Simulated assay, not measured.
Amino acid sequence: MAKHEELKDGGLFPVGDKNEAFAQYFVGESYLKGLVFDPKVSVGVGNVTFEPGCRNNWHVHRDGYQVLLVTGGEGWYQEEGKEAQFLKAGDVVVTHDGIKHWHGATKDSWFSHVAITAGKPEWLEPVSDEWYEEL
């Protein structure tokens, strides 16, 4: 049994539907629940839930930024050229414009964060299994 398995049914926010719209940019299964639908708000706000071992591809935010508010489980965040950071509930990550990075669950835990995103992501290569397994 994976750690924090209760997140698959929702945590602080609902788990949402399978993240089909961005599935091509993830290794493993993720779920997405939009949280803000006000056209006067110029940022996207969504709850993203990752199954154990799921992570997104390396990517860059253009003309914006991303703030991650970790709400449950255990995960990783890594910027290119830096050590991966272990994440747990209550952690906050700020990614500035143009910084190549990735984030996702640990191998044995569900993981959930609220992503507040301005600008457009530029999706890059997947995080290799070899790279991920060394964490």
Rank of each mutant, 00 (worst) to 15 (best):
L87G: 03
V114M: 09
F22E: 14
L124N: 07
D17I: 02
A21G: 09
T117F: 05
P126E: 08
P126I: 10
V48H: 07
E125P: 01
H59S: 05
W102R: 02
V15Y: 04
R55A: 05
W131S: 11
Q24A: 08
D38K: 08
E51V: 08
Y132T: 04
C54Q: 11
D108A: 08
Q78C: 12
T71F: 11
W58R: 02
W76R: 04
G72H: 03
H61M: 13
E29D: 15
S109R: 00
K33W: 01
G81T: 08
P52F: 00
V92R: 13
V60G: 04
K40Y: 12
L32N: 15
T95I: 13
Q85D: 04
K18H: 10
D91Q: 07
S128Y: 06
Y25L: 01
E125A: 11
T117V: 14
L12W: 03
A84I: 07
R55V: 06
G53P: 09
N56V: 07
I99A: 10
I116D: 08
V48N: 10
Y132S: 01
D97P: 05
I116L: 13
R62W: 02
G34R: 13
T49V: 15
L68Y: 09
V70E: 06
Y77F: 15
Y31Q: 03
G90F: 09
G73W: 01
G64I: 14
D17R: 12
E6H: 14
E6N: 10
S30G: 02
L12F: 10
N47H: 12
H113L: 12
V43T: 13
S112E: 07
E130R: 03
V127R: 05
I99G: 00
E130Q: 10
D108N: 11
K40D: 15
E74Y: 01
R62H: 13
S109G: 04
L12H: 07
V41P: 06
P39Q: 06
L68W: 04
K8Y: 05
C54H: 01
L7I: 03
W123C: 06
Q85P: 01
V92G: 06
D108V: 00
H113V: 08
R62L: 14
R62C: 09
K3C: 01
K18W: 02
L32I: 06
W123K: 03
S128I: 05
T117N: 10
V114F: 10
A89S: 15
G28Y: 10
Q66P: 01
H61S: 00
K100E: 08
H96Y: 12
D91T: 02
H103L: 02
Q66S: 10
T71D: 07
L32M: 13
W58F: 03
V41C: 13
R62N: 14
K33N: 15
V93H: 08
W123D: 07
L124K: 07
F37S: 15
A21F: 05
F26W: 02
G46F: 07
N47M: 15
